[in-house]
Simulated scan of single mutants.
Amino acid sequence: MHTIWKGSISFGLVNIPIKLHAATENKDISLRTLHKECHSPIKYEKICPVCEKPVGKEDIVRAFEYTKGRFVVLEDEDLEKLKQENEARAVEIIDFVKIDQIDPIYFDRSYYISPNDGGSKAYSLLRKALEDSGKVGLAKIVIRAKEQMAVVRVYQNTLLMETIHYPDEVRPAVDVPNIPSGDQVTDKETATAIMLIDQLTTDFQPEKYNDDYRTALLELIEAKKNGVAAVTPKEREPAAAKVTDLMAALQASIDKTKPATAPVKKPAVKKRTTRKKVVGEKKEA
């Protein structure tokens, strides 16, 4: 697994040399843009709209736009100096908290942590301490010139670091428009909705979920490569008709998701056998 960062984790006076490895990967399919006429890849050039000419890398500077059309130019030397002053190669755990106190909206990216040379024992100590305490470490780290908050926790016997957003990076929920101010549903509607949730509740098995769009796109690309003109998409269930009545929609959903039950077999009825009465002829004495 490729190492993307080397440094150390410290908590108190304990220091653990570590490496970071990306825990996830983006499997989006990247499509190129071509000239329709000759199928040549399109180039995107940087052009100054005032001078009306292309500009090279050496002609470009970075700046911050503090108001519309007004900029503060930042020199590369200033940015590099700032980066060096702040980029300490260390993950400093500053607090320990319960993970259920951190809302999932804060989580960003995940990295596996492995011990570097000489760090195995201290790595095992932190892993064991986190497991037994039921806590996670709250830390700070600088990655790619950006200081980030992070959570250090145990995942399948491996230490995992997840970068998290700062509070000012999470937009306030109160700014979301058109949110109903209070509950506008009846007790019956709520009870029926909970019944539907119970019927759809299952254990989380991530392997059963797939990216259907990516699979279909790969099949289309493969078919095009092999010269197949037409590709028949997989049949999808027809979209349900729009139901305006909330209770009707809930009831229809419950009926649709109700587990199939085997037909009840009726107990076999024994046929009564009737003996034929043989009437003999009466003998005369």
Score class of each variant (00 low, 15 high):
Ile99Asn: 09
Val97Ile: 14
Ile16Arg: 00
Leu82Tyr: 04
Lys98Tyr: 12
Ser110Phe: 01
Gly69Ile: 00
Asn26Asp: 15
Glu77His: 07
Thr24Gly: 04
Ala63Pro: 05
Ile105Arg: 14
Thr67Cys: 08
Gly69Gln: 01
Arg109Pro: 00
Asn26Gln: 07
Arg32Ile: 04
Val72Tyr: 09
Val72Trp: 03
Val14His: 00
Cys38Asn: 15
Thr33Gln: 15
Arg62Phe: 03
Val55Ala: 08
Thr24Ala: 11
Ser114Pro: 02
Pro41Phe: 08
Leu34His: 04
Asp28Arg: 10
Ser40Arg: 14
Glu80Met: 07
Ala22Met: 09
Ala63Trp: 06
Glu58His: 12
Val55Gly: 04
Ile105Thr: 13
Thr24Arg: 07
His35Val: 04
Ser30Val: 12
Ala90Asp: 12
Glu37Tyr: 06
Gly12Thr: 02
Lys57Gly: 10
Glu52Thr: 07
Ile16Ser: 00
Pro54Gly: 11
Lys19Arg: 15
Ile18Val: 12
Cys38Trp: 01
Lys68Phe: 09
Arg62Tyr: 06
Gly56Asn: 14
Arg32Gly: 06
Gln101Pro: 03
Glu58Gly: 12
Ile18Pro: 00
Val97Phe: 11
Ile102Cys: 09
Leu13Cys: 05
Ile60Gln: 08
Asp59Lys: 04
Asn116Tyr: 04
Phe107Cys: 03
Lys19Ile: 01
Asp95Ile: 03
Asn15Gln: 09
Glu58Ile: 07
Pro41Arg: 15
Asp78Lys: 03
Phe71Ile: 06
Lys19Tyr: 07
Asn116Arg: 03
Thr33Trp: 06
Glu58Leu: 09
Ile93Glu: 04
Phe11Thr: 11
Thr24Leu: 07
Leu74Gln: 08
Ile60Val: 15
Asn15Asp: 07
Ile93Tyr: 02
Lys43Ile: 06
Arg89Asn: 14
Glu45Arg: 15
Leu13Ala: 11
Glu25Gln: 13
Leu79Phe: 03
Ile93Trp: 02
Pro54Cys: 07
Pro49Ala: 11
Pro41Cys: 11
Glu92Ala: 14
Glu37Gln: 13
Ile47Gln: 13
Val55Pro: 00
Ile94Met: 15
Asp95Pro: 05
Val14Ser: 05
Ser30Trp: 05
Asn26Leu: 00
Leu74His: 10
Gly69Val: 02
Pro17Ser: 00
Asp28Trp: 04
Ile29Trp: 02
Asn86Glu: 10
Lys81Met: 05
Arg70Ala: 11
Lys27Asn: 13
Asn86Ile: 07
Val73His: 07
Phe64Gln: 08
Arg70Gln: 14
Arg89Ala: 14
Asp59Cys: 02
